[in-house]
């Protein structure tokens, strides 16, 4: 490859990254779709999606579940609530998973659980860092106890990966709740949250009902969790890639 080609490629990459980041900044208070997030995070064109073909088999035969999934698949161009794959961030190969709240509130059912576990196992086998961006309403109600089992399955996979020396960066975005926050997402070697993200086990509505009073201002937001020692750092969407690059560099073998 000619030097000029390299420069051209690099320039194009920076331009595109700039575009993706601008979008991130514009959407500061909104959700990024999984693919927007991946575009902002990975080197240009360096992401290969895996296990895309997995689809839910509606394990408890939940009424209208198949139809709703089909509808959402058409609308969001994704067939479940997480996109997983292998990408490069600043040339470093990483295993990445990104939730998308447009699909059943980003809830974790059998497909999300299976994609995460396959991703973690791939990271373990190829000794890649693991990065998961969570955004989830929790376990997927429509798959009943199978969804609860995904908590065990994903947490076990992550723990076994970590035991082998693997690095797991868990990024918590708005919202990360219930069965996702109470399983793999809380097990990061490093846990980063985005400003103001709601991160909790039980949602504010449930707690309000239980204790019958209003909740303190800022309760269960990222800043609250930082203060209580539950996360390592709060990082803006626009700085996320840079911070992750720094962390990855410090964990190069």
């Amino acid at each position: 490859m000619l030097i000029s080609d390299v420069f051209e490629r690099k320039k194009r990459h920076l331009r595109n990254l700039e575009k993706a980041r601008k979008k991130v900044n514009e959407k500061k208070n909104n959700h990024l779709t999984a693919y927007e997030r991946i575009a902002a995070l990975c080197d240009e064109g360096r992401f290969r999606e895996t296990d895309k073909e997995l689809t839910s088999k509606n394990p408890i035969n939940f009424p209208d579940y198949d139809e709703k999934r089909e509808e959402l698949t058409k609308k969001c161009h994704m067939n479940d609530a997480i996109v997983t794959g292998i990408g490069r961030i600043d040339h470093k190969k990483v295993a990445i998973g990104v939730f998308d709240t447009r699909f059943f509130m980003g809830s974790m059912g059998t497909v999300v659980g299976e994609r995460i576990v396959r991703l973690v196992e791939r990271a373990k086998k190829d000794e890649l860092p693991l990065i998961i961006f969570s955004a989830s309403g929790g376990a997927r109600m429509q798959e009943g106890l199978f969804s609860l089992m995904q908590m065990a399955k994903t947490a076990a996979a992550v723990r076994h990966f970590q035991e082998k020396g693997g690095l797991f960066i868990s990024c918590l975005t708005n919202p990360t709740t219930g069965g996702v926050s109470a399983s793999f997402a809380s097990l990061g070697d490093i846990i980063i949250a985005e400003p103001k993200a709601l991160i909790c086990f039980a949602g504010p509505r449930v707690i309000r009902q239980t204790i019958g009073q209003e909740l303190p201002e800022g309760f269960q937001r990222a800043e609250f969790l930082l203060e209580h020692g539950m996360i390592d750092a709060i990082v803006d969407k626009s700085d996320m890639r840079d911070v992750i690059i720094k962390i990855l560099r410090m964990h190069e073998a």
């Binding site: 065990a152 992550v158 109470a182 809380s186 909790c200 039980a202």
Partner: peptide, 22 residues
């Protein structure tokens, strides 16, 4: 589901228990 339980890391405690058992 309570204020104190959330403040003290209910999610983290459950996740750690699952991971430990596994």
């Amino acid at each position: 589901p309570g204020v104190e339980a959330e403040s003290n890391g209910q999610s983290n405690a459950i996740a750690e228990s699952i991971a430990c058992m596994s």
